[in-house]
């Protein structure tokens, strides 16, 4: 465990908590893509099947369970509890455009052709593109609430910190996982445009709105 890893995990957790707090306090999930949240729930479900096969540490197990629970509560809030506030019209990204290539790729490019390994690979590939419905929704409506941008910032920061973690692990442990690294780079690139807007607008007190 290095500083980048722990800060990355904290950012990830913070992002999920910010989103839940936003929905809970405003009693509304306006501006949030339910499709992205379903994809994240699917990402955690397929990746954390290793909870049943391998024990790493108490930290590892607890965090995985928290992430799973947060993801499912978020989906429940959007599609059940506050479904009347859900902006279904603008959440129109076609999920099959992501799911079909990601499923195909996880069968083609994996570490070993076993069910758990394919599902793990699927989760890594899917996570790299899971935010696209949310970014698509923002580009469609042309704006995002400030708290939603904080959520996105910490979610992007998490993956950027993981990149630093992988560089660190490569130098100190000689460990490097090509599937995770390539997907992590792709995932981080998707946030670059957003990071730019976040720094130039949101941090200066302006609302994020697109021209």
């Amino acid at each position: 465990m290095n500083i980048f890893r722990i800060l990355g995990d904290v950012s990830h957790l913070l992002a999920m908590i910010i989103l839940l707090v936003k929905i809970w306090r405003s009693k509304s999930c306006a501006g949030i893509s339910g499709k992205s949240q379903i994809l994240f729930a699917l990402v955690f479900t397929t990746r954390y099947l290793d909870l049943f096969t391998i024990f790493i540490s108490v930290y590892n197990t607890v965090m995985k369970v928290i992430f799973l629970v947060c993801a499912y509560i978020t989906v429940y809030m959007i599609y059940m509890k506050f479904h009347k506030t859900f902006d279904r019209e603008h959440d129109s990204f076609r999920l099959e455009f992501l799911l079909v290539p990601v499923t195909g790729l996880s069968f083609l490019e994996n570490h070993s052709f076993t069910p758990l390994e394919i599902l793990w690979t699927f989760s890594i590939y899917l996570e790299s593109v899971a935010i696209l419905p949310q970014l698509f929704m923002i580009s469609k409506t042309g704006e995002a609430e400030t708290i939603t941008t904080h959520y996105l910032f910490f979610l992007g920061l998490y993956r950027a910190l993981y990149l630093a973690n992988w560089i660190w692990r490569y130098h100190t442990e000689n460990f490097y996982d090509q599937i995770a690294v390539v997907s992590g780079v792709v995932q981080t690139i998707f946030y670059c445009d957003f990071f730019y807007l976040y720094v130039t607008k949101v941090l200066k007190g302006k609302k994020l709105s697109l021209p």
Partner: peptide, 10 residues
Amino acid sequence: TMDPAKHDEL
């Protein structure tokens, strides 16, 4: 075979 280093990450 499982790679523990990989499963250590979240």
